[in-house]
Computed example of a mutant assay.
Amino acid sequence: MIDGLDIYSIVGFGGMACIIGAYFYLTASEKPNPFILHGTNLAGAALLTVSLVVHTNLPSLVLEGFWAAIAIWGLAKAVRERRAQKVGRL
């Protein structure tokens, strides 16, 4: 194992990959699926939070809290919009 690279750092790198992947998906997609976008961001924030709880960096931990909250808000908005579309089709 690389010095300083423990399981929590590896989990953090996974979270980083999720967030970067979601940003790439948003940028590359003509019409991104909000469930994929916000779900991937939420997973990334959660994984990075696991890492940050062990390797504490308070500003980054607060950032991940906001990142997760925005992702949850985006998912809730997508659910509401999907329900409204289904009601409109009936």
Score class of each variant (00 low, 15 high):
56 T>V: 13
74 G>S: 00
44 G>Q: 01
71 A>N: 15
72 I>M: 09
2 I>D: 14
42 L>G: 12
87 V>R: 15
12 G>D: 10
49 T>C: 08
32 P>S: 01
34 P>A: 00
85 Q>C: 04
5 L>D: 07
49 T>N: 07
62 V>Q: 10
31 K>S: 14
78 A>K: 09
66 F>E: 13
57 N>V: 14
14 G>Q: 06
36 I>F: 08
22 A>P: 15
30 E>C: 00
13 F>L: 15
69 A>V: 09
13 F>K: 14
64 E>C: 12
43 A>K: 06
32 P>C: 03
43 A>T: 13
50 V>P: 10
52 L>P: 15
88 G>H: 07
19 I>C: 08
59 P>L: 00
56 T>D: 10
44 G>M: 00
45 A>K: 06
48 L>S: 09
88 G>S: 14
32 P>A: 02
72 I>S: 04
19 I>G: 01
78 A>S: 13
55 H>Y: 00
1 M>W: 04
44 G>S: 01
52 L>F: 09
24 F>D: 02
28 A>C: 11
41 N>P: 14
58 L>K: 12
59 P>Y: 00
57 N>Q: 08
53 V>Q: 12
49 T>I: 12
73 W>F: 14
79 V>H: 04
37 L>E: 08
79 V>W: 07
53 V>L: 15
9 S>C: 11
22 A>L: 04
48 L>A: 06
44 G>E: 00
1 M>I: 09
32 P>M: 03
61 L>S: 10
69 A>Q: 05
12 G>C: 05
70 I>H: 10
76 A>E: 12
78 A>N: 07
54 V>N: 03
12 G>P: 15
83 R>C: 05
78 A>V: 12
23 Y>D: 11
55 H>L: 00
26 L>R: 14
71 A>F: 09
70 I>N: 14
51 S>P: 14
88 G>R: 13
71 A>K: 07
75 L>W: 03
17 A>V: 14
49 T>D: 10
55 H>E: 02
66 F>S: 08
60 S>E: 12
31 K>C: 04
54 V>E: 07
42 L>D: 03
56 T>A: 03
58 L>Y: 11
46 A>Y: 07
1 M>Y: 04
28 A>N: 10
45 A>R: 08
24 F>S: 07
89 R>M: 05
23 Y>V: 05
